[in-house]
Each structure stands twice: as C-alpha cells, then as structure tokens.
Amino acid sequence: MKDVGQLTFFFLLYWYSRSIGRRDRMILYTTPGCPKCQDVRLYLQNQSMQYTEVNLLQDSKASQQMEQELGEVYAPVLWKNEQFIDGETYLYSINS
C-alpha cells in the first residue's frame, strides 16, 4: 500500500495534468539555470508540444514528493503517460 506522501504526490500530478486539460499532456520539472532543462524546453516548444512547467526550487511540495517517489530530486524530469521520464533520456531516445 502506498503511504500518504506517495498518494499526495500522485494527486498533485493528477491535478496538474487535469489543470492543463488532458492527462496525456506533459509536465516538465525544471530548475533555474539548468542547461539540460533548457534543451528539453526548447525541443518541446519547437515541436509545439503542450506542457506545464514546474520549477522544483519554487514548488517545495513537488520537490519533496519527487524525492519520496524517485529517491532524489533532479531535473529535467517529464511526467508523461502517467510515468516519470528522465528529460535527457527522452531527448536522446527521440533523436536517435
């Protein structure tokens, strides 16, 4: 059974995804000054892909929940199709 923190985290992700209209859209977790975050952001924008960006340094609940779920906080991370995807891995997979 999931603990309360994990349930809260998934609720937040669900709320973010519902707030942008469709569950298949993406959430991009970033930190300021992160060059890999910028690469993913630019790719998504160039492809006209809709996403919501969450700054992990400004949203302490999101960063705490990410740490609980993934064991660490890092960026860029995408939430897509109800799963976490490392942003750098995502870029590599679509460009290879």
Rank of each mutant, 00 (worst) to 15 (best):
Q38K: 05
E67H: 15
L78Y: 03
Y74F: 14
K2H: 03
N81C: 07
S17K: 03
V73P: 15
Q68W: 09
Q64E: 13
P76N: 06
E53F: 05
Y92Q: 11
P76G: 04
Q47C: 06
R41P: 10
S96Y: 08
Y74C: 02
T89K: 13
D59T: 02
V40C: 03
T52H: 14
L78E: 04
E67M: 09
A62R: 03
L56W: 04
F10M: 11
L91Y: 03
E67N: 15
M1R: 08
R22S: 15
C37V: 07
L42R: 13
I85T: 15
F11Q: 14
L7G: 00
E72S: 14
N55H: 07
T30I: 11
L12K: 09
F10P: 04
T8W: 06
Q47H: 12
Y14W: 11
S93F: 00
C37Q: 01
I85F: 14
D39Q: 13
Y29S: 02
S60N: 09
T8Q: 13
Q45Y: 00
A62N: 02
T31Q: 13
C37Y: 00
K61P: 04
L70Y: 06
Q68T: 12
K2R: 11
Q83V: 13
G5P: 00
P35H: 06
Y16S: 04
S93K: 10
L44P: 01
L57Y: 13
M26V: 01
I85Q: 14
M26R: 13
C37L: 05
Q50K: 06
T31C: 10
M49N: 02
M26K: 14
S63A: 15
Y90D: 03
L57V: 06
